[in-house]
């Protein structure tokens, strides 16, 4: 059970990172559906990723920087 859970954890990680083939994804999701513990694992991992992402994705560039870059390129030309 422990090694099976570890193997599944690894595959969940690969799935969430977009590294599984369509066939591997299908197999994983079928396996997860059969076991509530695995559903919980997938849910927690997804929450964790969203949690992190929401804290890091908050900075946008100022329009003046874009203009400054274009001006410098125009001057260089």
């Amino acid at each position: 059970n422990t090694s099976k859970f570890k193997d599944l954890s690894k595959r969940v990680t690969l799935y969430l990172d977009g590294e599984l083939s369509k066939e591997e994804e299908r197999e994983l999701l079928l396996e997860i559906q059969k076991n509530p513990q695995y559903v919980q694992l997938l849910g927690k991992e997804q929450n964790f990723r969203e949690f992190i992402k929401s804290r890091l994705q908050r900075k946008k560039v100022s329009p003046t920087l874009v203009q400054s870059i274009k001006d410098k390129i125009r001057t260089a030309n």
Partner: peptide, 20 residues
């Protein structure tokens, strides 16, 4: 790119310079 630069440097001026 700016988001990446900011989270590497944690300084808006440095991030702007890096992106530019």
């Amino acid at each position: 790119l700016y988001n990446f630069a900011y989270h590497l440097t944690y300084n808006e001026d440095d991030a702007n310079d890096l992106v530019q």
